[in-house]
Write a protein that binds this DNA or RNA. Structure first.
Lengths: 248, 248
DNA sequence: CGAACTTTTGACAAGCATCAACACGTGTGG
DNA sequence: CCACACGTGTTGATGCTTGTCAAAAGTTCG
């Protein structure tokens, strides 16, 4: 028996994230990495997918940040989720090809686009991968719930601190940074659209957080100077980010 | 060949909802209705599942209203979703057994509890049902996104009108009412926890909506007196409630 | 070096929260 | 059957958080 060697593939970050939900059989790992895909380099604010358009691919983020968002009739925007290296953003396109949201980069980014048919096929033939995709979507839903709480029931300072804590923990998981120091090429206007606030008010909260020595910004990096204090300010508990907690 | 006859089963409302995503093979319909389950009658504010507890069943609503919600350290509550007849609320328990939210009835309710093992089994053996479960979860996620927009970027009047429109359309789909007249045994405090407002302010908005002749309440029923006007007041577009739009 | 974007500042307004009290209806137990 | 208690809805006064508008200062990139 010749052992399957793990190929070098652009999809490695995706595999790494999925294996966080439980180890995959070697053949499944290989099949995942061999999924047909086209790689694309996008500039800041590049559109990946528009609301109401039919999607033929699923998007995996390889580098940079992207987001889901909706634009309202009055012109205001709500960012629904932020995505980073390894995130499978669009797996649901295999089941519901017309999205209810826009998908756009927040920064320059690398993405891989996998045909929906290939996603459907690998899920049908490999139960362990289907399960991993499932959990990826369910984690996404858990984050969406927490964001609903965030904008619904927390004040501006708490909202922003919570968002920054979440981003830190997720960067750590994705190996793109540490929770106390991670890439932050995101504007305060983006943070405003995440938190349902105005850019002006976000700016004032940032100043307050800096004045209290909770964090520092600059050089497109966010540095948390006092994690416990920032987590407390954000009423942040990371439980919801661990889908497999409580499992053997 | 003897045709399979559709059994009478408490799970009929669940089947009806799933068939809205596409017709199921007769054998799958039968298998779904024959899923093992225990039926329970709950009083108002009855707990179905608590955050952090391990779930051994998935909950299907047969009658009444239930909701997901989280309670914050400061005591305030955010309702994350409202569920009604036919909704499979908890299918994800088959993959992630420890929920990040509480599940509680808003009114007296009938529910069916299906063991997670039975859910996993029927998904593994019947692809059409697995697909329907998938779409059920993805529709749930689409609604969650819309709620994030609702609390993030709409003012109080718009938020409440939007919620009432959504409930009407969903009642119509679930055959528990019409969009212009549906059961509403829900308190203004519940609406406040849905919309991230205070009960006092919800009360004032209701008065304003009644004064403008958009709706009437009473007898535990909500009557929309002018649907186009209410939909406009809520900036409501029902697209996100139709997961299979754009499909053959 | 200049244009476009992002951050920052200040004055002012508005929407919603807070607090407290009262009215209303409904179900329940004496 | 009435009395009462509790949950729900309603009202008013007041204040704070956040939004709005406008402009200036700082930054990045071609």
């Amino acid at each position: 028996v010749i052992a399957l060697k793990t190929s070098s593939s652009a999809l490695l970050p995706f595999l790494a994230k999925l294996e966080g939900y439980g180890r995959l059989p070697a053949e499944d790992r290989e099949a995942l990495l061999q999924l047909p895909h086209s790689q694309r380099t996008l500039s800041r604010s590049g559109h990946i997918l528009r609301e109401g358009e039919s999607a033929t691919t699923c998007c995996v983020i390889l580098d940079g940040y992207a987001c889901r968002h909706k634009i309202l009739p009055n012109g205001s925007r709500q960012i629904l989720s932020v995505h980073m290296k390894g995130d499978g953003v669009d797996l649901q396109n295999a089941f519901i090809p017309v999205p209810d949201y826009n998908l756009q980069t927040l920064t320059a980014a690398e993405v891989a686009l996998i045909p929906v048919a290939a996603i459907a096929e690998i899920m049908a033939s490999r139960p362990a991968i289907a399960r991993a995709f499932f959990i990826e979507m369910l984690l996404d839903a858990a984050i969406q719930r927490e964001w609903t709480v965030n904008v619904g029931r927390r004040d501006a300072r708490t909202r922003i601190a919570h968002f920054l804590c979440e981003l830190g923990v997720r960067c750590e998981t994705a190996h793109t940074g540490e929770r106390m120091r991670y890439p932050f090429p995101i504007t305060q206007e983006h943070v405003a659209d995440v938190t349902g606030l105005t850019p002006v008010h976000v700016n004032r909260v940032f100043q307050s957080l800096r004045a209290d020595d909770l964090l520092a910004t600059g050089d497109r990096t966010l540095v948390v100077k006092d994690w416990p204090a920032l987590a407390a300010a954000g009423a942040f508990r990371s439980d919801y980010l661990n889908p497999v907690r409580g499992m053997g």
